[in-house]
Structure formats: C-alpha cells, structure tokens
Design a binder for these strands. Sequence first.
DNA 1: GTGGTCTAGACCACC
DNA 2: GTGGTCTAGACCACA
Lengths: 123, 123, 123, 123
Amino acid sequence: MPWELKPDRPIYAQLVEHIVQMILSGVYPPGSKLPSVRDLAKEASVNPNTMQRALAMLEEDGLIITHRTSGRSITEDSEMIRKTRTRIARDQVSEFLEKMQKLGFEKEEILSIITEMIKEVRG
Amino acid sequence: MPWELKPDRPIYAQLVEHIVQMILSGVYPPGSKLPSVRDLAKEASVNPNTMQRALAMLEEDGLIITHRTSGRSITEDSEMIRKTRTRIARDQVSEFLEKMQKLGFEKEEILSIITEMIKEVRG
Amino acid sequence: MPWELKPDRPIYAQLVEHIVQMILSGVYPPGSKLPSVRDLAKEASVNPNTMQRALAMLEEDGLIITHRTSGRSITEDSEMIRKTRTRIARDQVSEFLEKMQKLGFEKEEILSIITEMIKEVRG
Amino acid sequence: MPWELKPDRPIYAQLVEHIVQMILSGVYPPGSKLPSVRDLAKEASVNPNTMQRALAMLEEDGLIITHRTSGRSITEDSEMIRKTRTRIARDQVSEFLEKMQKLGFEKEEILSIITEMIKEVRG
DNA sequence: GTGGTCTAGACCACC
DNA sequence: GTGGTCTAGACCACA
C-alpha cells in the first residue's frame, strides 16, 4: 500500500486516513509495534512534524498507544478496533445516503445503482 | 430548502452543491430564470462576490446561462441536466465504494450494511 | 448573413461589426439606402435603442450618412469605403502579428502556419 | 518584460496572457518555481486577489501546479507546454482568418498582406 | 436593475 | 512563509 498524497487535502489528514486503513485491514495487527515517527515519515516522504501530528490524532482516538520510552504500538483492544471499523463505515454510509437523497434519489434507485456499479469494480 | 452553511468546507463549494440540488430536484426547472446575484446572496446570507463565484462555476459546467444584462437562467437542455444528475450520482457511489473497500469491506458486506441502514432513514 | 449574437461581447459592438461587414462586402453598396432603425432592430431581434447606438458609431466613422427626414444611407464615397477596408485589415494583421511574436513565434514560422491553415479553411 | 495593463480588458485576463507568454517563451522553464502570489501581485501592481484568480485559471489549464504550502511551480510536462503553444497559435490564426474572410478578403489577398506587413515589423 | 471586476484588508489552515 | 477564502464596498458597461 503506497502513500499516495494528493495536494488537494491536508497531508496530515491523508496520513491519518491511510494509517487507519492499515490498522483496520490488519497490516498492523492489534498490539503490534509501530515504526518510529522518523521511519514512517521517511516512508511517506513527509516532514516528521506532519507525521507526528497524524499519530497524535490517532492516539486521541485510542487506536494507538504511546509508550514513553519504547515508541508506539497499536491498541491491543481488538474489540475497539472492530467498533471503530463499524463506526467509520456507518458514518460513510449515512453521509453517502444523505447526499444521494438531497439529489432526489429514492431508496430503490440508490440500491439499484449501487448493486449495478459494485459488480463493475475490481472485475 | 434552507441554506445550511457549515464551516468545514468553502462556502462557494457548498453554494454550488446546494444550487445543483435545487436544479436537479426541479426547484428551478430547465429554462427558468434565476434570481439576481444580489438576491441569491441575500437569501443565503452571503457576500455577493461569493455567490457570484458559485454561479460562475455552474456556468462553466453548462448548467446555467448568463444573459449579460438580464440575469441568469437554467439551461433549457434538460437532457444535460439529466446526464449531470447521473454523473454526480455515479461519482458519489464510486467514491463511496472506494472508501469502503479501503476499509476492508467486501462487496456483500457493503450491500448488507446499506440495505440495513437505508430502511432506518426517513422511517 | 444571419445576425449571430453571442452573449460574451456587447451587443452594440457586434452589430457595428456585422454592419461593417455587410457594407465592405457589398451587401449595401455605396450610396444605397439603409432600412429603418426599427426594421433593422427587428431583423436582428434587438432593442431599437441598441441598434441606434450601433448606427451612431458607424456615422461617426463616416461610413453612414443620416438624412434628417429620409432615413440613413451608405456613404457614396467608395474611396473611403475602400480605405476603411484596408485600414481595418491592416489593424487586424498588425494586432495578430504582435500576439504571435509575444508567443515567441518567428516570422517564418508564422507564415508557414498560416499558409498551412489557410488551405484547410472552406475546403 | 513589463506588466502593461490596458483598461480595455479584464486585468485578470491580461495577467493570464502575460504569464502564459512568460512560460511559453521560457522565462519560467518547466518545473521551475513561481514567485508567491503576493510577490507577483506586487510586481504587477495588482491586488493579490486578482493575481490569484489569474493563477487559478492557469492551474485549471494544467500549466501550473500549486503545492498547498510551498508555492506554485510550472508543470514539468514540457510536452504539454509545447502543445499549449501550438493550440494557442492555431486559435489565434483561425480567429484571425475568420475575421479577414468576413471582411471579404480572399486567401491570396490575406497572404500577400501578411507577407508585406511582416517585413516591416521589427525591421 | 443586471452581471462583472477590482481593491483593501482580514482571517484561516498548513508546513 | 505559503495558498485559500471571505467580506465590504466601490465602480463600470450594458440594456
């Protein structure tokens, strides 16, 4: 998973999103150790300050634990990770549904468009 | 339809979106006249310059025609309006699907979440 | 020759240009009588005031003569018409050459592009 | 290259044109960094907002890239720059030819006028 | 009255 | 420091 950074949104926000994806998809399993800020920053070709900011936000969410002496690790609370995944998903869905309804789409229409398009994606 | 403006995104972008919704949902039918920049700005509690910027963007898209001295009107090309509606919808869906897949959701899972949540919305 | 009016430039200016073309190309020969303002306005689907303004400008240039009681006519001075045609042409050419040179085109390059494109036009 | 601003056309349009010329003529080579909005505005004796508008238009055309916090630069795609130059040139020529033909000039006549006048320019 | 442009000056997020 | 957004208020051409 490459660190694709587009210039249209704040870099730190894209970093947060990317790391969350890696955690939720299991690249970094619960309890596993995170690379150092410096290494992560280098990997993403980003200023360490910016990476630090991203990690700080993830810590606020409780997804990441900082050990004062030995770096950071993913939370061991896999239940929380699961819940986070669900919460984010529901947020996405509800935001999406709201937009579609504002455009005047009915429930059935939304469903049919999605089922149609979901077949095309990735074969 | 009130002009809800949130501070998290550029105002002009929200204005564009709102006006598009009004056009697509038929509040302003094809060929109908639009209120003056000043009136629209007053209605949205926004500086005329900001509203003008939004309208200019809509004109670039071809959704709006400006008559230099006698105001603006919605394009009479209702076919284009229909296509715009479809295009925006497909964009929304594809953006949504991409996000969900990055979070590690499978096709079936996405569909089931949506069908579940769509029942809750608006009763 | 239809009266194509685009909304991107002042209408009166387009009227002036159009009438000049008709005069220079012989639609209205030297000395011939011009239709009334009202008729011209109707033909061009334009407010008579606007047509009046256009004619006034043409009169300033000396291309049109106003007879206080019997309408307007094209000047009989065909020499002046010929000179006007030449003047306008030279203005166009010099303006065009200036633009091309600002874009960094050399004389030879300009000539070759033109000779190439002039073959394509109108077969 | 001074910033000559005439009152007959929108300033932002003249700024766009001027910057394009600088890019096409190599004053700002592909990939090079552009001065800040504020500096450019000062240099052209223009309000920063106006300069910003011009730069935004250039970005839409793909000629300029903006890095959100570290200024703007010319696109590195020198092929695109070359194509832009050609496109603009052809637009100028075709617009010019159309005007001349509306004035009743034949192909040969146009060519002869140009070849004659092109000798006079810049000695 | 309409749209369009421009300035001055302020404020913001980001790095 | 960078780009981006917004407001307030003025002025203009046009019909």
